[in-house]
Design a protein around this nucleic acid. Structure first.
Lengths: 143, 143
DNA sequence: CACACATTATTTGTATACAAATAATGTGTG
DNA sequence: CACACATTATTTGTATACAAATAATGTGTG
């Protein structure tokens, strides 16, 4: 490999960095980072999950989840409640404030997604999605 | 966007994470991280560059470059020398130890690249590269 | 049932990454 | 030439991300 611009790891990192910055800018008005957004997103789908479930879905280390939850809790968007069935576990619940953000934050991130998609043909965008899914989430298909 | 798995930012992040881990594992025997590797790679192409040139090429903030250089310097792989033409600047030079790593490290990262490519057809892999370049480095073509 | 082993969350340490501020030095316009 | 503005590297602070260690609790096999 003569040029770093031929290294897939490098290219993926830079593409991620760019899209992450677009999302960060879009979410800045709510004081939320992209990672905090995706964690909230999983809770909007299903409230009251365990930390380890969130980490599994988001492919994040437990230590990382702890930190993200700390910040979301400090902002008053989520709440840790003890799991009555397993005292090792907390269940993570959205606060009303956390629930309110679903619609507006999905709107601004949808705009970013459309911006990304608009750089390619529909066919290319779909292929990109399936290739990234295969690379990052292990399988070609959906989960 | 109903599922985070449809969010390009998320997919890019996870694909990057996976490939980064593969590279990290391959480079671990040399005690080098993927980011340190790409910085060294730019120096192998041309020794004696300024920090700001490295940051421009790698799309990294000056503060990030400072940190990466600190660690590479501590490991004895690079050296900061004053620029006689501009006293604001250091020029970054490879040490003999830093030069030695070029061949072996390129070999192990080439293996990772081939692993990534092998997941797709040649046509798909080329399209992926051009799409990531367009997304992350601004233009479709090469620089 | 006891106890080795597993699971869950957290803490600590290291490495990116960027924003904002700072200090030193260059450059360009009147 | 002076001085506002730009450039370069660094420092400080915040936010991921993971590895390794720890503490508390569960689970399964003899």
């Amino acid at each position: 490999m003569d040029r770093i611009e031929d290294c897939y790891g490098f290219l993926l990192g830079k593409a991620y960095q760019k899209v992450w910055q677009m999302e960060k800018a879009a979410l800045a008005q709510y004081g939320i980072t992209p990672v905090q957004f995706v964690l909230l997103h999983v809770l909007w789908e299903k409230d009251g999950q365990k930390g380890v479930e969130l980490g599994g879905r988001l492919r994040l280390d437990g230590a990382t989840i702890t930190g993200v939850l700390d910040r979301l809790e400090k902002m008053g968007l989520i709440e840790r409640r003890p799991d009555l069935n397993d005292r090792r576990t907390n269940l993570i619940f959205l606060t009303p404030k956390g629930k309110e953000l679903e619609k507006p934050m999905n709107q601004v991130t949808d705009v970013v997604n459309k911006e990304v998609i608009s750089m390619f043909s529909e066919e290319e965008a779909n292929l990109l999605k399936s290739m990234l899914t295969k690379l990052g989430l292990g399988q070609k298909g959906d989960r």
